[in-house]
Design a protein around this nucleic acid. Structure first.
Length: 880
RNA sequence: GCGGACGUGGUGGAAUCGGUAGACACAAGGGACUUAAAAUCCCUCGGAGGAAACUCCAUGCGGGUUCAAGUCCCGCCGUCCGCACCA
């Protein structure tokens, strides 16, 4: 039996079959054990799983298997984020149906995940494109509508004037449609929104309770919500300059203290005042049109050249009625934020300053920074936003910025315009409402009917689902639901007359905002089974990419609250508001990418397994395997289909087995950081799988039989092995618990080194028993990470039970304590020696021992010791 | 542009609370075993100096706090992620 290689590709399917037959991983909603809900962000079924994807599921699986061994009732489900654009693109390119393409991908990917041996409860699997899932989503929409959480308003989209279709931001390349190449326009459409802004304060406050979330994610969300305290100020329009029907302009500011430095107001191109002024001013109208040509993303707006146009409208300064300021239209002012209008203080804001310099508007310094001299202080090319002392500011002069804020705000509240206060203290949020309408086929239909007589009519619940039609074509641009000959024709549920269905579908972020709740009972005939959700939620450990830090996670936090507030609360009286108790954001798997540059400048990416790499450093060159043609080395990037730098999971498993893949993605790199895929790294993992098998296989013959009584005493080596075993167990458990898999892996490497040394001393008293203990615990420790190999080893150790059903072994803490400790001795902060001393040694004893060290005396060289710092168990520092 | 992170040997990284920097692994070099190879096992391995003991330098760069800084603070540089219709 000994010296046989472990044949992973052959043995792994065997154990997977056993687990499946025994239904080991099916979670019960009725169980006395404490519950643990482990979830990895579910995948988009893009086609095939590559090694990059597998990392996140492996981490979740190790945690889930560990928790199961620790005695928890574990829920570890899997599903598919199955709606979205790639399916429609595939439909256009390959003439397949998006549904057919999606379900084929799901079938392939499910098999891939199964071949990784993940401990998933497949009975709970669903795809968001299943009618049985999205019909409940439609019910949720109706309930949101009822509660006022869903509403309609006008909003802008990227419009391709040639294809007559709405484009996603990623479909707009350099301001042009990706297929047509036409200049993209902005178009106003009436669309559906969720009132996430109603929850802004709660979502912000809730962050402080999420102490098991990464600090950076909470910070990013807090900044995204962007609460700011300020004053909303109404400016009176000067008579004669105001368009008909307009008498005032409302502006939100966080800096009322700088009001005396205001030199102009600026409004968005879509601001009602701008539109009104443009009616009688063709040049202004043209400028506003130009602003609308600009991209819709924050990136484009920020990077665009700052431009403006004077509307001719003038406003009266609230603190000085003799002063009038011009109102401009500026391309950097957003209608969606605040009131769509700002007042500009160029001395204190860089963007305002650039604008003022460009259009020759006044710049009045109003804040004198600490240490500056008022007589010589000037604003050059850089605005000064720091706080300081107020100058040139009338009644605010001499105050600090903070005092001036209060004084100005109070005065604005006291002043009256048309009988109402000029200013009101207000809290503003950067967060905008969530636009969910998409003009696409492959999404959840919005259950609404538009009737000429009755207006917007919700589809009655009893008529759900509104299912997508199957017979659609993608041969012309635009939304196939809109083109469909019959689908949208329907009788109005209210008056019975012919009406039309809403043809917009929902943003796929809606689908992923509640799937985790649905997993608690995916077969319930209501969206949320309150009892099951009350039992399982919140998710105890959520794992996913950092790229979801804001949108998906914020939307889900909102959606969960919105569900509760529209009658879909999780039971248990817990009033649960946060769906994810702990969050972990893992890094990605990266791989070198290779490409060939075509004469037209485009790059054709090449799969790494078709490339041979030669040389080192700067001389590294890559060639095509079949033709020998040289290819460019394109740097290390995240594994992605578009760059083709993926390693297919099937190929990998066929060659190395799932356990090698699992071990590789867990090794070396800290899980929150990116890991570089390299062949040599994989070789290392493969070697360890064999080494672990060999150790167990060989040593099990030297160890005592299972169940042998523990000897009364152990020889030194046997005792040391036992200590090492329990230290390893303690560390591996702690590191899995903390998701520090790379450290757990290192600990296991270290332990195998100890084990292979110890087995040489079989003469030592009690060694046979210590080896048996070491092997059994070792196998249990690798169990969560390499479950197939561990089962194989468990059987080799003589068991006919399943390792996966064994409880996690307990640490003998008596074996963890050292009675001696080595501490470093420093002189003036530099290490000069070390000291082995009893753990119980007093400070005085440690100090005396340190000072008597030969190396310390030599370095001191007769100098007097000024001070000795003793940190027991850690360090001694002699200061001379 | 705005917001957030990260930066340690030839390489991936470890250092849990401010307390011996480089655990563990990979690569490389040397040796054992073998007819030979693979596999496996053993040794060396941050840089400079030195026969050695040992000394000096070293955690992206420049400052600071501290008895003590990879770790804390300030300022740079570089890389990565997000920016609301990719998921």
């Amino acid at each position: 039996m000994a010296n046989e290689r472990y044949n992973a590709p052959e043995r792994e399917p065997h154990w997977q079959k056993v687990w499946e037959e025994e239904k080991v991983f099916c979670a019960s909603n009725e169980d006395d054990r404490p519950k643990c809900y482990v979830l990895e962000m579910f995948p988009y079924p893009s086609g095939r799983i590559h090694v990059g994807h597998s990392r996140n599921y492996t981490m979740g699986d190790v945690f889930a298997r560990y928790k199961r061994a620790k005695g928890f009732n574990v829920l570890h489900p899997m599903g598919w984020d199955a709606f979205g654009m790639p399916a429609e693109n595939a439909a256009m390119e390959r003439k397949t149906h998006p549904g057919a393409w999606t379900y084929e991908n799901i079938a392939a990917m499910r098999e891939q995940l199964k071949s990784m041996g993940f401990s998933i409860d497949w009975d709970r699997e669903f795809a968001t494109c299943d009618v049985s899932y999205y019909k409940h989503q439609q019910q949720l929409f109706l309930d949101f509508l009822d509660k006022g959480i869903a509403y309609r308003k006008s909003s802008k989209v990227n419009w391709d004037p040639v294809d007559h279709t709405v484009l996603a931001n990623e479909q707009v390349i350099d301001g042009r449609g990706w297929r047509s190449g036409a200049l993209v326009e902005q178009k106003e459409l009436t669309q559906w929104f969720f009132k996430i802004t109603d929850y802004a304060e709660e979502l912000l406050e809730g962050l402080s309770s999420l102490d098991k979330w990464p600090e950076k994610v909470r910070l990013m969300q807090a900044n995204w919500i962007g609460r700011s305290q300020g004053v909303s100020i109404r400016w009176a329009l000067s008579k004669g300059s105001a368009p008909k029907g307009h008498r005032e302009l409302e502006v939100f500011t966080t800096r009322p203290d700088t009001l005396f430095g205001a030199s102009f107001l600026a409004v968005a191109a879509d601001h009602p005042l701008a539109k009104a002024a443009a009616e009688s001013n063709p040049a202004l109208a043209a400028f506003c049109d130009e602003c609308r040509q600009m991209g819709t993303t924050a990136l484009e707006i920020e990077n665009a050249e700052k431009k403006g146009f004077d509307t001719g409208i003038r406003v009266v300064h609230p603190f000085d009625s003799s002063q009038e300021l011009p109102v401009w239209v500026a391309n950097f002012v957003l209608m969606e934020y605040g009131t769509g209008a700002i007042f500009a203080c160029p001395s204190g804001d860089q963007r305002d300053l650039d604008f003022a310099r460009k259009y020759d508007l006044p710049v009045v310094p109003v804040v004198l920074p600490k240490g500056a001299d008022e007589a010589t202080f000037e604003i050059g090319d850089e605005a000064v936003s720091a706080s300081g002392t107020m100058i040139n500011s009338g009644f605010l002069n001499g105050m600090s910025t903070e005092e001036a804020f209060e004084a100005a705000a109070s005065k604005l509240e006291a002043l009256k315009l048309q009988g109402k206060p000029v200013g009101v203290r207000a809290t503003n949020y950067r967060l905008r409402d969530w636009g969910i309408s998409r003009q696409r086929y492959w999404g959840c239909p919005i259950p609404i009917i538009h009737c000429k007589a009755c207006g917007v009519v919700p589809v009655p619940s009893c008529d759900l689902p509104v299912a997508l039609p199957q017979d659609v074509t993608f041969d012309k641009p635009g939304n196939p639901l809109d083109h469909h000959p019959t689908w949208k024709s329907v009788d109005c549920p209210s008056c019975g007359k012919p009406a039309v269905r809403e043809t917009d579908t929902m943003d796929t972020f809606v689908d992923s905002s509640w799937y985790f709740a649905r997993f608690t009972n995916p077969h319930a005939d209501v969206p949320l089974d309150a009892k099951a959700a009350g039992y399982w939620l919140p998710v105890d450990q959520y794992i996913g990419g950092i790229e979801h830090a804001i949108l998906h996670l914020l939307y889900s936090r909102f959606f969960f609250r919105a569900m509760a507030d529209s009658g879909h609360a999780a039971a248990g009286g817990s009033n649960l508001r946060e769906p994810f108790g702990a969050l972990f954001t893992q890094g990605m798997v990266t791989h070198e990418a290779y490409f060939i540059s075509k004469p037209d400048g485009t790059q054709v990416w090449i799969e790494p397994d078709k490339v041979r790499v030669e040389g080192e450093g700067r001389n590294r060159k890559a060639f095509l395997l079949d033709s020998g043609e040289e290819v460019q080395i394109g740097g290390v990037e995240k594994m992605s289909k578009s760059k083709k730098n993926v390693v297919d999971l099937n190929d990998f498993i066929r060659q190395y087995g799932a356990d090698t893949a699992r071990w590789f993605v867990l090794s070396d790199s800290p899980p929150e950081r990116d890991v570089l895929y390299t062949d040599v790294g994989v070789e290392g993992a493969r070697r360890f799988v064999q080494r672990a098998w060999r150790l167990v296989d060989e040593i099990s013959d030297k160890a005592v039989k299972k169940g042998t009584k523990k000897p009364a005493s152990f020889g030194d080596e046997a005792f040391e092995l036992r200590r090492a075993t329990h230290k390893a167990l303690y560390n591996v458990g702690r590191n899995i618990e903390a998701l520090r898999f790379n450290v757990a892996v290192a600990g296991l490497y270290e332990f195998t080194n100890v084990l292979s040394q110890a087995q040489k001393n079989t003469d030592c008293e009690g060694m046979g028993w210590a080896l048996r203990e070491a092997l059994e615990l070792f196998v249990q420790m690798i169990g969560p990470m390499m479950p197939h190999l561990a089962e194989e080893c468990w059987a080799r150790l003589g068991y006919n039970t399943l390792l996966v059903n064994q409880p996690w072994p307990s640490v003998d803490s008596a074996l963890l304590v050292d009675d001696e400790v080595t501490i470093a001795v420093q002189v003036n902060g530099k290490r000069r020696g070390e000291l082995k001393i009893a753990k119980s040694a007093s400070k005085e004893e440690i100090e005396a021992a340190a000072l008597s060290l030969e190396a310390v005396g030599r370095v001191l060289d007769g100098r007097t010791v000024k001070k000795v710092i003793v940190v027991p168990l850690r360090i001694v520092n002699v200061v001379a």
